[in-house]
């Protein structure tokens, strides 16, 4: 899955499941779309199931708490995939 594929998948999830309207890659998830801690946990579950195909460790999940934008989400997923492939 390429970076563009991941980006498209995340945009689809945010639009369809989280009812984001016209999400921008650098939008602030919380301020611009009302994304909260509950959404973050739910999104991680969807990332595990539909993009990564494996369960995240607690340490990996904690790293996601610094995410602020969609670009951050994509970078986070790429980083996880890269770390796991080593």
């Amino acid at each position: 899955m390429t970076k563009v594929d991941i980006q498209d998948k995340i945009l689809a999830i945010l639009t369809e499941d989280f009812e984001f309207e016209k999400p921008g890659l650098d939008d602030n998830l919380r301020d611009d779309h009302g994304f909260d801690s509950i959404d973050a946990i739910e999104l991680l579950g969807k990332i595990e199931l539909t993009i990564l195909g494996f369960s995240l460790t607690r340490e990996e999940k904690e790293k996601a708490m610094g995410i602020r934008t969609i670009n951050d989400i994509v970078a986070y997923i790429e980083d996880i995939k890269h770390s796991r492939s080593k």
Binding site: I38, I41, L44, G45, E48, L49
Partner: peptide, 13 residues
């Protein structure tokens, strides 16, 4: 197992 991660804060709330 695949659904385990979905049991969390939201289901409790």
């Amino acid at each position: 197992d695949s659904k385990f991660s979905s049991i969390g804060a939201v289901d409790y709330l």
